[in-house]
Amino acid sequence: MSSTRARFRVGQVVHHKMFGYRGVIVDVDPHFLGSEEWYAQVARSRPPKDSPWYHVLVDGQGHSTYVAERNLEPDAKGGPIDHPELSRHFQRLGQDGYETRRMIH
Rank of each mutant, 00 (worst) to 15 (best):
A43I: 02
P84R: 01
T100N: 11
F32A: 05
P84Y: 03
Q91L: 15
Q91K: 14
G34C: 05
P74Y: 11
D29K: 04
G78D: 10
R70H: 03
P48F: 06
V67S: 03
S64Q: 01
G20M: 10
F32I: 06
G78C: 08
M103E: 15
Q41F: 10
D27F: 12
H15L: 12
K17S: 12
R70I: 11
R70A: 09
R92H: 14
A43S: 09
S3T: 08
Q91R: 15
A68K: 03
S2F: 07
R7V: 08
G23P: 03
Y98D: 14
S35C: 05
Q41C: 09
F8M: 07
T4L: 06
H55L: 08
V14F: 06
F8W: 07
P30G: 02
K77S: 13
A76R: 10
A76I: 07
S35Y: 06
N71I: 04
D75Y: 08
S64F: 00
Q41T: 11
P52T: 00
E37P: 01
S3E: 13
Y21K: 04
V14I: 15
I104N: 13
S3A: 07
R46G: 02
G78Q: 07
A6I: 09
S64E: 01
V14E: 04
N71L: 15
G79V: 09
P80S: 12
S3P: 03
D82P: 00
K77H: 12
F8A: 09
Y66L: 12
R9A: 14
E69F: 09
S2R: 04
D82W: 00
G60M: 01
H31D: 11
A76Y: 03
G20P: 09
Q91G: 13
D96Q: 14
R7C: 08
R5E: 15
P84A: 05
G20A: 12
L72S: 09
V10H: 03
H89A: 02
D29E: 12
V10K: 03
T4R: 02
E69S: 11
M18C: 08
S51A: 01
I25Q: 01
R101D: 07
Q95Y: 10
M1I: 04
H83A: 04
H16Q: 04
K49T: 12
V28L: 05
Y66N: 10
G23M: 01
Y66D: 10
P48I: 01
T4H: 01
P84C: 06
G11I: 01
G20T: 10
P30E: 11
S45N: 05
R9E: 12
H89C: 05
E99I: 15
V42K: 02
R102G: 14
P84F: 02
R102Y: 12
V42E: 07
V24S: 00
G60I: 01
E69A: 11
Q12Y: 04
A76G: 10
P48D: 13
K49C: 05
S45T: 11
H63P: 02
F90R: 00
R9N: 11
R46C: 09
P80T: 08
P74I: 11
T65H: 07
R46T: 08
V67K: 00
R92E: 15
D75N: 13
H15G: 06
G20K: 02
H31A: 13
R5T: 13
W38M: 14
L93G: 11
